[in-house]
Structure formats: structure tokens, C-alpha cells
Design a protein around this nucleic acid. Structure first.
Length: 448
DNA sequence: TGGGAGCGT
DNA sequence: ACGCTCC
């Protein structure tokens, strides 16, 4: 049996843990740069505000206090996600995080009743120890577990835990009334193509001949149909494999055409990409950088240049990548455009260990100690504590995040304030002590 | 008016 | 290279 544990309105729920006044109110969390709504509370869904609504369209509602809109706080959500995974591991040995708010758990050798009980136990624990509402779907395949989770969320009588057997009448009834595009892996386009063939429900897809599906659509769709029948054929191990390319890109808080500012933004993305590269123990052979103007401004000239810089030898050294960035910007920059976004991609990645073993020459290995030290300090003290080159104070290109909550669980300076509650004095003392500890750690750290 | 990734054609 | 899919 496979379980899928999925948090309800994860980002909003994380915000509510630390700000209970948001409970039972319409709350939305915005994307990076406060661009659009990417998470909604049930109350906001009830107002029929769709996913992805541009924030500026909601400005009026927000000003009148009818809705709350928060900037996204990924540091907080990431930490809550890690805690959720840990709670699951305490209850079950085989946990595979699929996304920030979804985790698969593998329950081999458990009876249906035991699976049901375990689902109820983890749900209760996560609510109690973490304050997060989650639902649990249990089924023989990933696709059915996803579906079971969907049902646990929508039909209240399941009380957050739904177990679906592959061949039960309940499962059949559910599949018959489920639109095919609600099935995992079926998006808008595939659903349209299926509708042409008269396939509109999950049940109809399940009844299709996989060989036909493979011929007329794709191998992915054939697998999905098999999964709906209870034949497990999706592997989740892709998540543990090292990435084949690494990208870091961000929109700007404010458009800019100033070369030095573009360079600064690209440098930051290059440094973050290099960190990700070293984390998965790869080397890159090519660096691609790009800029784009604001495609929503039809009145302004559009330009999306990119430059590809092959490296002389594979590297994970931030300084080598930064040099490629400098060269690439020289190649692609043209004055007279207002750019809105910059990004860096590392392509053609190779495994660091294998590459070095196959060449047996230490000269290709560039100063690992420096990079390791930088990574260790940033890991411990927070991203960007040590950076290459000058820091730009309050550059206009930096992300907008006007309504971000505190990073309550990952920053000493942003811990919860206890206010006037009777526990306030003790809490304030604890916070003071923790800040002193943080300062001491900051002083001690450079020796690392 | 988001960011990041993989797969299939 | 591009389109589709996921979250």
C-alpha cells in the first residue's frame, strides 16, 4: 500500500500556525515578487478567486480588508516541510518527499486496517505537533493514492483519511464521476484530446487498452491507465537522481536596463546555481544566461537575449562560473531595453566523482576547500551570508516581498514575539539568550 | 501577471 | 526546439 500525505492549503496553513488571527479568514499567499496568488485558504476559494490571479487585480479587496494577501516565505515553508517529513519518518520507515507539501509513504506488509489506522495516527500527530492540517490517501499505486487524497480532501465524511482498494465498488463509483483531467498526469491539453475520443472520466481511461493509448497518445498515459487499474508502474526515484540541468531565475522588483544591475542579478543567480551544483556533487560544462523584457508591456520594445558559454573544463567553482557570466553579459547586452527578469542555467552536468576518477589528474580539481567553507557557512548562517563580490544595498531589481511574515523557525532575530501573554517575560528572556547565542556563533564561525 | 524541473515528439 | 505536465 502507498500513502500520500498532502497538506491542506500548505502555505496558508503555515502562515496560520504563527498567526492564528488568520484562522477562518480569506487568506492568499502570493508568488515570488508578489506577482500572483499561488495558495488560497478555503474561504478565499469560496470567494471564487482563481489560482494564479494577478495580485494587482485583488488590490481593492485587500485594501478594504476583505482578504489577506501575504508574500511567500519559502524559508518558513521549507522548514515546516522538513519537520513534516520527520514526523512521518518517526511513524513509517519509507518516506519519499514528492514536493514541499506532499510526501509518499510506503506501507509494505500492512493490512488495510493497519494502513487506515496509521493514516489517522500521522494525521493527528501532524496536526498536534506541527499545527498543520493534512489529508492522507491510501491505495495500491501512486496515481490511486493521489486520487484517494483528493477524495479525502473533498468528502468530509472520510475525516481526512481515505483508503481505496483497486477493485472495490467504491473506487469504481468514484472513478466514474471523476473528470479525467483530475487524474494525476492528465493536464488540460491531454484531457481535450481524450475528449475527442469520448474519454471524459477516470473510469473510461482505466478501461482503455494500454497498447492503444501508447500508440495514439504516449507511454506516460498508458502507464496512468494501468495505475488506475491498480498496477503500479510509476517510479518515484527520479527525485533522488541528480538534476540534469540547474536553473536559477527571478523577476525583478522593478525593471532595469542598467548593465551593472543586470550583472549583479546574474551574479547572484550564478552563485545560487553553483551551490545547487555542488550540493548534488556535479560539475558543469556550460553556462547559459538570459535576460527578458516585460512581455506584458506591449508598448515597450521586447528583447530576450541569451548567451551560452562553454567551459574549458567541467567545474563547480563559483569563480569560474562568474567569469562565464561576465563574458556572457558582454556578448548579449544591448542598451535601450527595460529588462524584467534574469536567469542562469548550468547545462551538460557530469558527476564530479566519476569525472575526476576517469581523468586521474588533480589539476582539474579547483580549490574545493574554499567552496566547501563558503557552503558550510551559508548552510549554517543562512543563504547569502558569504557572497562573491560587492553587495548592492537595496537594488531596485531585488524581489518585491512587501508582506512577508517572519522566518519564525530559521532566523534567531525573527522568532515569535509572545506579546503581553503571561509567558511573555520568560519568552523574551529566552529570545534574548538566543540572540546572544546567535551573536556568539557569528563571531566563532569564521574559523570553520 | 512565479519558479523549477523532466519527459515526449 | 518546443510543448506539456507537475507543484
Amino acid at each position: 500500500m502507498i500513502g500520500l500525505v498532502d497538506a491542506n492549503n500548505f502555505y496558508v496553513s503555515c502562515e496560520r500556525v504563527f498567526n492564528p488571527t488568520l484562522e477562518s479568514k480569506p487568506v492568499g499567499v502570493m508568488s515570488n515578487n508578489d506577482g500572483c496568488v499561488i495558495a488560497r485558504s478555503a474561504e478565499m476559494k469560496a470567494m471564487e478567486i482563481p489560482m494564479g490571479t494577478p495580485s494587482f487585480q485583488l488590490e481593492g479587496l485587500r485594501r478594504r480588508g476583505e482578504i489577506h494577501l501575504l508574500s511567500s516565505n519559502y524559508e518558513l515553508y521549507g522548514d515546516m516541510s522538513a519537520r513534516l517529513a520527520q514526523l512521518l519518518r518517526d511513524a513509517c520507515p519509507d518516506v519519499a518527499p514528492y514536493s514541499i507539501d506532499e510526501m509518499f509513504i510506503y506501507l509494505d506488509g500492512f493490512s488495510d486496517a493497519q494502513c487506515q489506522t496509521l493514516g489517522e495516527v500521522v494525521r493527528r500527530r501532524i496536526r498536534r505537533y506541527l499545527g498543520l492540517p493534512v489529508c492522507v490517501g491510501l491505495a495500491p499505486t501512486h496515481t490511486l493514492a493521489k486520487l484517494a487524497n483528493h477524495v479525502a480532501k473533498k468528502q468530509v465524511h472520510y475525516q481526512g483519511v481515505c483508503l481505496l482498494a483497486a477493485n472495490s465498488p467504491t473506487t469504481a463509483a468514484l472513478l466514474k464521476q471523476l473528470p479525467v483531467n483530475d487524474v494525476w498526469g492528465i493536464g488540460r491539453r491531454i484531457a481535450e484530446r481524450l475528449a475527442v475520443s469520448g474519454i471524459r472520466t477516470a473510469w473510461q481511461l482505466r478501461e482503455c487498452d494500454p497498447k492503444q493509448l501508447r500508440k495514439r497518445f504516449s507511454v506516460v498515459l498508458a502507464r496512468t491507465a494501468l495505475e488506475l487499474r491498480g498496477t503500479s508502474c510509476l517510479e518515484m526515484n527520479a527525485l533522488e537522481q541528480p538534476r540534469q540541468r540547474i536553473m536559477t531565475s527571478r523577476s525583478f522588483g522593478q525593471a532595469t536596463g542598467v548593465k551593472a544591475e543586470l550583472h549583479a542579478a546574474l551574479r547572484r543567480h550564478a552563485q545560487r546555481s553553483a551551490e545547487k551544483l555542488r550540493q548534488q556533487k556535479s560539475l558543469t560544462r556550460a553556462v547559459l544566461l538570459f535576460l527578458t523584457t516585460n512581455r506584458h508591456r506591449k508598448d515597450q520594445p521586447q528583447f530576450s537575449p541569451s548567451a551560452m558559454i562553454p567551459l574549458a573544463s567541467p567545474s563547480d567553482d563559483t569563480r569560474i562560473i562568474l567569469e562565464a557570466i561576465r563574458e556572457g553579459l558582454e556578448q548579449m547586452y544591448r542598451p535601450g531595453f527595460q529588462f524584467m527578469k534574469a536567469g542562469v542555467m548550468l547545462l551538460d552536468l557530469v558527476d564530479a566523482q566519476q569525472y575526476q576518477l576517469s581523468l586521474l589528474q588533480p589539476s582539474t580539481k579547483t580549490h574545493p576547500h574554499l567552496m566547501n567553507t563558503v557552503d558550510a557557512i551559508n548552510q549554517r548562517m543562512g543563504q547569502g551570508t558569504i557572497r562573491f563580490g560587492m553587495t548592492e544595498a537595496e537594488a531596485p531589481w531585488q524581489l518585491r516581498c512587501a508582506h512577508r511574515s517572519n522566518r519564525y523557525t530559521t532566523c534567531w532575530d525573527e522568532l515569535m514575539e509572545a506579546g503581553t501573554h503571561p509567558g511573555a517575560i520568560a519568552a523574551a528572556r529566552m529570545k534574548r539568550e538566543q540572540q546572544q547565542l546567535a551573536r556568539a556563533q557569528r563571531l566563532a564561525q569564521p574559523r570553520a
